[in-house]
């Protein structure tokens, strides 16, 4: 009985956190069907503000694809395809929106990503555009992606990339990226 109460409390805490100011929240695999539903939700929920809708949509595609490709936790779709699992929360405040994603990563492989975030956060807008052009002229990563996604996210949001890494074990960490988009 006590245990059930505890579980209910955890669920309620999750609910209160996830529902506060939240427009869209999702946890699970990031396969193409889920992406389509979330994309449609973004278009619908933000239809009053086309400028913000477009920005959030652009950020969504890049970060959702990152989860789909790079999350360590995968869903086997059974048809030879695998989709990364993660969490996404879009929230609205008085003067800004926040866009946060989280997923489990291989602790050994995350350092280039952290390095990229740090580099991005040091650059002003013009230098960031220059950096994007430089990366775009290098060979692409998997599925033609990688490399420029985070730079594009920072340019679109016009704010630094606020990231955190929570170690889960020696091999795994939880990687969170939180983006602010001013209204």
């Amino acid at each position: 009985m006590e245990k059930n109460k505890e579980k209910a409390k955890v669920l309620y805490d999750m609910y209160s956190f996830a529902s506060q100011n939240t427009i869209i929240s999702y946890t699970g695999p990031f396969d193409s069907q889920v992406l389509a539903v979330l994309a449609a939700n973004i278009e619908y929920s933000l239809s009053k503000n086309p400028r913000i809708r477009k920005k959030i949509f652009k950020i969504f595609i890049e970060l959702a694809q990152n989860i789909s490709y790079y999350s360590l936790e995968k869903l086997d779709a059974g048809d030879g395809n695998e989709f990364g699992i993660g969490i996404l929360i879009i929230r609205e405040f008085d003067n800004h929106f926040t866009f946060a994603t989280g997923n489990i990563v291989d602790s050994k492989k995350i350092s280039p990503v952290i390095h990229k975030c740090e580099t991005i956060n040091l650059l002003d807008r013009d230098s960031l555009r220059q950096y994007k052009r430089k990366l775009r002229n290098l060979p692409p990563g998997i599925k033609g992606g990688g490399n420029i996604g985070l730079v594009q996210v920072a340019l679109t949001a016009n704010n630094p990339l606020d990231y955190k890494l929570i170690p889960l074990s020696e091999e795994q960490s939880f990687y969170i990226i939180n983006i602010k988009i001013d209204k």
Binding site: K58, Q65, K143, I148, G149, Q152
Partner: peptide
């Protein structure tokens, strides 16, 4: 009206 970053390489 919209293209993602991997498309941006192909446009280049």
């Amino acid at each position: 009206t919209y293209f993602n970053t991997s498309t941006s390489r192909c446009i280049l």
